[in-house]
Simulated scan of single mutants.
Amino acid sequence: MTSVHDFTVKKADGTEQKLSDFAGKPMLIVNTASKCGFTPQYEGLEALHREYGDKVEIIAFPCNQFGAQEPGNAEEIANFCSLTYDVTFPVMAKVEVNGANADPLYKHLKKEKPGLMGLQSIKWNFTKFLVDKNGKVVSRHAPTEKPESLKGDIAKLL
Rank of each mutant, 00 (worst) to 15 (best):
I59L: 09
H108Q: 14
L83C: 11
P104Q: 03
E112V: 05
G118W: 15
Y106T: 01
V4M: 07
M27T: 01
D86S: 15
S149F: 14
M117V: 06
P147K: 09
F38H: 11
P104I: 04
A155P: 01
V138Q: 07
L158Y: 05
Q17G: 09
K111F: 15
E43Y: 08
K156S: 03
K156I: 03
I58E: 00
K10L: 07
Q120M: 13
K11W: 05
D153M: 11
L83Q: 00
V131W: 06
A93L: 04
V9L: 11
A102N: 00
V30T: 04
G115D: 00
T8H: 01
K136W: 08
T15C: 04
V95P: 00
I58Y: 00
V95F: 05
L119C: 14
T144W: 08
A47S: 10
N125W: 08
S149N: 01
E51D: 05
N134W: 13
N73D: 15
T2L: 08
I58G: 02
N64D: 07
S121A: 13
A74E: 08
E75P: 07
F61S: 00
M117R: 07
D21T: 10
S149Y: 12
A155K: 02
E75Q: 15
I122L: 08
A68M: 15
K107G: 09
V87L: 02
F38W: 14
L109N: 08
K25Q: 12
F7Q: 02
G44Y: 13
G115F: 10
K123H: 12
F22Y: 15
A33Q: 02
F38P: 09
Y85V: 10
C36R: 12
S139A: 15
S20W: 10
S82Y: 06
A78Q: 05
G44S: 12
T144L: 15
